[in-house]
Design a protein around this nucleic acid. Structure first.
Lengths: 256, 256
DNA sequence: ACGATCAATTCATCAGATGAATTGATGCGG
DNA sequence: CCGCATCAATTCATCTGATGAATTGATCGT
């Protein structure tokens, strides 16, 4: 006698709070709510989502913790300006990348940020990585090679490779970049997985990153990581079919 | 007839949820809870904090959104390993810096991360900053000079300066670093504010950052920002009295 | 000794009621 | 006409008590 399909979009497996967080987060990122107007009042929104107010309030608190909304009495729950959002948060980044996978601005910013952070992480890994952490990098590279035929496993190994480099850097701040990087790579691979022949092409650069870090060659590790990223960028930019690739590299929005 | 002082530590001004988040966050960061054992059950913890279960649950959800805890039925609310915590979060970082202002590991990691990110942000600001965003940098530098006598205003201007550089970079990911940087600078100034003669010493380097960015000189802006950070680092390391400064620069913990 | 079943514990969610805070209107006086 | 203080309405904030759901660990049978 249970209703198999509730009238709302909440059907994911985890908990109701997590589902509501996902629904609201995606809506906000997608711009479904007017930037000026506040969200519907708690009672209405809870009813429209078919959950109790407790669930909605806990979900709003999660979004507030991520810097996306601010709830105040009498004024309601308002969406904060996008600069306040915590783009280092795994979920926030994933919502962005799902909403607009090839949005030129964000894609360029992400590639830029990776180019800033990851080569330095590789350098630090070569300098300071413990043997075990270094070995983890080599292991993930090995999985990339052996799993070349299985896209699923290869992607997992590739993500693990980049995370392992961050971990080996020994820098807690860079390590904190790992969840965001996981979201980035997950989204990127969803784009480029349809072209499996691209994957092996980036293996040599990955191998050199691993070897340089294992050998304790900081400058070499940094340079090799830059080459890994350059390969990824050209691949992604090729795939950003909609617009002119030059636009992705050169164009800049102007903040007021 | 109202009790003026509740039997708990919740006396801050905002809301009860924010207070509970702060109390629990600081306790967790300080290691007050056993790493293996879960937190007390909701009912007990809520009672011991003198709040309702709703408030406690919303607070726990906030901490979960920051990656610090994970609540599961039957097993309780457990503290996640420190690598999972979102160190880019303003609050998490502030709790760390308040709990152990001069913890060598984290201090070194923060300085390292700033040296990686901020010079590149200055470079991008010189390249891509809009005139208005560039002018904001110059304005904040101006406030640093004029407010040199008022430590309060000078600190605010200094923080604003570094944030303005991030903003002018035009990179959304780097801009998302702003809340964390605010927490970092706030904590750092609480350490070094007792030595006001240090502040003017770093003004020339700040001025050059501003000028190079205004002039559209990327390499110069990056180099100048590096000098700003170098000055800050020597100042902080001098102040890290407890340990040998060399230790701060050279020593590395080994991750297993 | 191994496996399936079951019960206890804990979080998850709901519902209704009351409190608190902020805003915008209202009305008065200048 | 304008400025200011007061007040009321709206919204979130919090409390309380109860019920549901999920996971674990023990129990029991084989």
């Amino acid at each position: 006698m249970a209703e198999p399909a509730p009238p709302t979009a909440l059907h994911m497996g985890k908990g109701k709070v997590a589902s509501v967080v996902a629904v609201l987060g995606e809506r906000i990122v997608a711009g479904d709510y007017a930037p000026d107007a506040p969200l519907p009042v708690e009672a209405d929104l809870a009813q429209s989502l078919d959950v109790g107010r407790s669930v909605l309030r806990e979900a709003v608190k999660v979004l507030a913790a991520k810097g996306m909304v601010l709830a105040r009495p009498r004024v309601g729950t308002v969406i904060l300006p996008r600069e306040e959002w915590n783009l280092f948060d795994h979920d926030v980044l994933l919502w962005h990348l799902r909403a607009m996978p090839l949005q030129p601005d964000l894609l360029r910013d992400i590639l830029e940020a990776r180019r800033i952070i990851e080569p330095e992480a590789a350098l630090l890994a070569a300098l300071n990585g413990s043997p075990a952490r270094k070995q983890a990098i080599a292991d993930h590279y090995h999985d990339m090679v052996t799993g070349a035929r299985d896209p699923e496993a290869a992607v997992k190994a590739d993500i693990g490779f980049h995370i392992a480099v961050l971990m080996a850097s020994g820098n807690a701040i860079l390590i904190a970049f790992a969840p965001a990087l996981t979201a980035i790579l997950t989204a990127f691979f969803k784009i480029s997985i349809q072209k499996p022949e691209m994957f092996p092409g980036n293996l040599p650069a990955h191998e050199e990153v691993s070897q340089r870090i294992l050998a304790g060659d900081p400058a070499g590790a940094r340079a090799a990581m830059l080459r890994v990223l350059a390969y990824t960028e050209t691949d992604l930019l090729d795939r950003a079919a909609a617009g002119d690739p030059d636009e992705l590299l050169q164009t800049r929005r102007n903040y007021p």
